[in-house]
Design a protein around this nucleic acid. Sequence first.
DNA 1: TGAAAATACTTAGATATAAAAGTATTTCGC
DNA 2: GCGAAATACTTTTATATCTAAGTATTTTCA
Lengths: 161, 161
Amino acid sequence: MARSNNQETRTVLRHWQEDVPDDRLAHLVRDAGRVLTKTLQTKLADHSVSFGHWSFLRILWVTEGLTQRELSEQAGLMEPTTYTALKAMEANGLIERRQLNGNRKNIHIYLTQKGRDLKQTLIPLAEAVNESAVRGVDEDDLLATRRTLLAIISNLAEANE
Amino acid sequence: MARSNNQETRTVLRHWQEDVPDDRLAHLVRDAGRVLTKTLQTKLADHSVSFGHWSFLRILWVTEGLTQRELSEQAGLMEPTTYTALKAMEANGLIERRQLNGNRKNIHIYLTQKGRDLKQTLIPLAEAVNESAVRGVDEDDLLATRRTLLAIISNLAEANE
DNA sequence: TGAAAATACTTAGATATAAAAGTATTTCGC
DNA sequence: GCGAAATACTTTTATATCTAAGTATTTTCA
């Protein structure tokens, strides 16, 4: 898999260096996102964690006890996606799904010790990917990139009204 | 769909404005890519073109007659993905799959007139999404963003060796 | 307080994508 | 020119994601 992964990254890179007209920032953003995801995915796989599960772990390491609905919203995924992922994560022993008090509608999600412990292992992996990705990039460029990407998300939130 | 799309975009935006630690550029890149894709996807759907098909049309508008393998590489997708997408595009009357000369192994892809004509309709849609996405963003920030994203793709190509 | 509305989860079905394995064809080196 | 290697497409199977619809529960308000 490392080979085909790298193969793909190279091809995407060559494409951008040689072929691309100057007006396709969207395409560039998507490609960068894709290689970032692939790279992290490969590292997470060594610990039997899929990228989808990582998304929820990240949130739960900050706040446990959220409902499935709340997790969906924070992750930016639809509820069936969340439902399936959480079921799988429960089966993998990463989380527990609990009903609290008398409420039979809401299901609250808690980490198991195993899920909690993974934080120490996985966060450094993600940080390493980030560091390696931006190696050599000017600090001002990074700040400008953050501004631009936030503006894109914000502009499209309005444009989609 | 517009509503849930917008709902999601807003939630992602709030998340970034309120919650995010300063060291997760990767996550920001992915989220921006996601809202860009969603926005374009919605507009393409009005013309019965899926985002996957758009990816191949874009390439074919520049160069017809590529093989499936070559298309996979340019699009940065695996061959089964390409195979399925092209079969569907053929069924939709967007492309033709032809064998040339005596070669029975390679399949070359050509646009139909319908596929060719869509260029005039769809390219402006994509450009409009790009424009609306970067509205109000400083020109220097845009250049810096391009540099950063290219560096990310390039760095990860090396890191994945 | 009881019916309507809103909420939260679940199920069903569809699409996009990939990995792995299979088949057919072409190319290359002896 | 023949057999091994490489190539190119196809099939199978699996995962992630979504939309739409369904079910159960809670909340609201007349």
